[in-house]
Design a protein around this nucleic acid. Sequence first.
DNA 1: TCTGAAAGCAGAGACGT
DNA 2: ACGTCTCTGCTTTCAGA
Lengths: 158, 158
Amino acid sequence: MAEPDTVIGVMDRTDRQLLTLLQQDATQSYVALGQAVGLSGGTVHERVRKLRERGVIRRTTVDVDPAAVGKAVAAFVLIEANAWMGDPPTARALAELPWVQEAHVVAGAASVLVKVRAGSPEELQAVLKRLYRIAGVTGTQTIVVLETFFERPVDTGE
Amino acid sequence: MAEPDTVIGVMDRTDRQLLTLLQQDATQSYVALGQAVGLSGGTVHERVRKLRERGVIRRTTVDVDPAAVGKAVAAFVLIEANAWMGDPPTARALAELPWVQEAHVVAGAASVLVKVRAGSPEELQAVLKRLYRIAGVTGTQTIVVLETFFERPVDTGE
DNA sequence: TCTGAAAGCAGAGACGT
DNA sequence: ACGTCTCTGCTTTCAGA
């Protein structure tokens, strides 16, 4: 049985190893990455370039401590609606709220689930108030985060 | 009234601008960042170094498409328990499951909320089965993601 | 597809303002 | 705290296996 490939393209063990290493520290040099996977720097450079090109690597970014930028409070909000909310207008309305970090259309009693980050409980309340102003929203259920155990990159299998 | 600073240290407007720019693209050179905020490359280099030192920037990483590494299915699982689950043993048990991308202790009916990524509904089911084997777990409520509108970095206010 | 080398540039830090 | 300068090292490309 062949290695299960994705729709996007060929992904061998080395590529997944590189993704894991880059997720841990994207400031590493290609030579250092090459030593870790047993390849030359030039080859690693080419592989990473292709991973970016294919969209497997979406972007290189920095992980910022939310508390340091005044977003110490996190919450998940289940949004109920009386109409279909899985369309672009809903996505846009949610994207306009900078406190909304993630938004997903979900199966179940709720229509949409959003992850919210605010500076205080009062600010969280203000965000909830604004969520109610979005077309179709009939109710919310808020789950406040008391402590975050961990938030980590997607597992690549390597 | 002075600018509200965080516990971690002084964070002025320029620092928040730099964080936003780095979240968008951490491969930019310090000179390019300097042009964007009106500073020299050397000064930006020093500011970013301090942001890393203080832990405001936790790490530089790459954003990987989950579907490309065989994790096309996402779900949020609310875990109910008959004992306090906010302790390190629970965190460790959850961290051992590579499908668990995030884990939070939450307020409300559930004790813990986890974000899970799997390759298929069957694999998701297998993960749920393993969650039940963690000490104290008495039930779960699973919210399957049908479509992700967006997942983006924390808003810095700039 | 990989290696190794050559050329251009960015990163890291010392120093002066 | 910011800018300039320098040196070191990495990135990027390409010829060749």
